[in-house]
């Protein structure tokens, strides 16, 4: 089966099951939300998905363009523009109705409530917090600064260790370098591993490493490094894949081997974007490092969570101020650096 048919069926099936779920609201809560009926719901959802997919193919045969067909069907007549306005098409209404139902479900699921937002007790609590933060306790400033320096170095070491690893891996994860069957297997394997590593958030890596090496900046640094390797490799390899093929052929025609070709034909083309992405990654890592501290990754985040736990808002205010200044400075510096490297 062609991939676009599978994609179309899945999307249309999903839309259909969303539309079906609009009718559940009439059913009593007990039928739906008990654990006993969890299996039933899954089966119901899958049935709706399949039914929707079948419906999609019936509609497609009947020359009605569903949303899935509109998005995934290859365009056989690229020169022909859509004649009808979207509100007169089937796919337009399918999209609007699905979006509306999803929005309504979302409002319920997130327990959206104006009452809670404007509740007087809650507002007073928030006011206390903001007032505390607005009058920072500068006593903790030296400690905050020494902690943010730790955070900055966490980010720096994580980036520095990740860069050479990502540099080497990026060529192995670039399609235009990895030609041939064995090379393609390595390419696929590496891509899968990297996607896996990247899909695990740095926060989760920090939890893993804080168990492994103990709570503190080392765990935070390792977490950032793992995430940076995966992200940088992906970004680097995309640059490698977009290089001009001309110099590569020029070097190959001289009888150069693979490593020489990469070094002489690809590296000069990618080095500036690589540096630019690395600087940006350091910037991102400083921001991430403050968050990672919240789960035991050391640095300013650990200090923040300590004072927040004791509701010492004046101290929290100082810490937030220090973080804001450093993040803003890093952001500006990295922007200026990247602009200069263009």
């Amino acid at each position: 089966m062609k991939p676009y048919i599978i994609r179309r069926s899945l999307l249309d099936g999903f839309c259909f099951s969303v539309i079906c779920s609009a009718f559940y609201f009439y059913l009593p809560e007990a039928v739906l939300n008990t654990e006993m009926n969890f299996k039933l719901q899954i089966i119901l959802f899958l049935c709706e998905l399949i039914l929707g997919a079948l419906l999609s193919s019936v509609l497609y045969r009947g020359r009605i363009t569903t949303l899935g067909a509109k998005i995934f069907q290859p365009d056989f007549n690229p020169g022909v523009a859509e004649a009808k306005n979207f509100y007169r098409t089937f796919w337009g209404w399918q999209f609007l109705v699905t979006l509306l139902i999803l929005f309504i479900i979302g409002i319920f699921k997130t327990r959206f409530s104006f009452f809670e937002l404007l509740n007087i007790d809650g507002l007073q609590g928030a006011q206390r917090l903001f007032l505390g933060m607005a009058s920072p306790n500068w006593q903790v400033l030296p400690q905050a600064i020494s902690n943010i320096i730790e955070t900055i170095f966490m980010a720096f070491i994580a980036t520095t260790l990740a860069t050479p690893v990502a540099f080497v891996l990026s060529f192995l994860a670039a399609k235009n370098v990895m030609k041939g069957r064995m090379a393609f297997i390595i390419y696929l394997f590496l891509r899968t591993i990297l996607n896996l590593v990247r899909s695990i958030e740095a926060l989760v890596w920090a939890i893993i490493f804080s168990v492994w090496v103990g709570i503190g900046p080392f765990a935070g640094m390792l977490a950032l490094m793992m995430h940076s390797i995966a992200s940088l490799t992906k970004q680097y390899s995309e640059i490698v894949e977009s290089v001009n093929e001309g110099p590569i052929e020029g070097i190959q025609s001289c009888g150069a081997n693979k490593i020489q070709t990469i070094w002489y034909a690809i590296v000069p083309q990618v080095i500036l974007p690589f540096i630019s992405f690395t600087v940006y990654r350091w910037d991102i890592n400083v921001r991430m490092a403050t968050i990672i501290g919240l789960v035991g990754g050391g640095g300013i985040g650990t200090m923040l969570i300590k004072y927040q736990g004791q509701a010492m808002w004046a101290e929290v205010g100082t810490i937030i101020f220090v973080i804001a200044v450093v993040v803003w400075l890093m952001d500006q510096a990295s922007a200026v650096l990247r602009e200069a490297l263009k």
């Binding site: 052929e249 020029g250 025609s253 001289c254 020489q260 000069p268 083309q269």
Partner: peptide, 26 residues
């Protein structure tokens, strides 16, 4: 077998002499 191309296929960021030396990579 040497080869030259329509688009020259030099490495733009390197010096001329380095580009010529690349003929000795083999």
């Amino acid at each position: 077998i040497g080869m030259i191309f329509q688009q020259f296929n030099l490495v733009p960021r390197h010096t001329v002499i380095k580009n010529v030396l690349m003929g000795k990579l083999a």
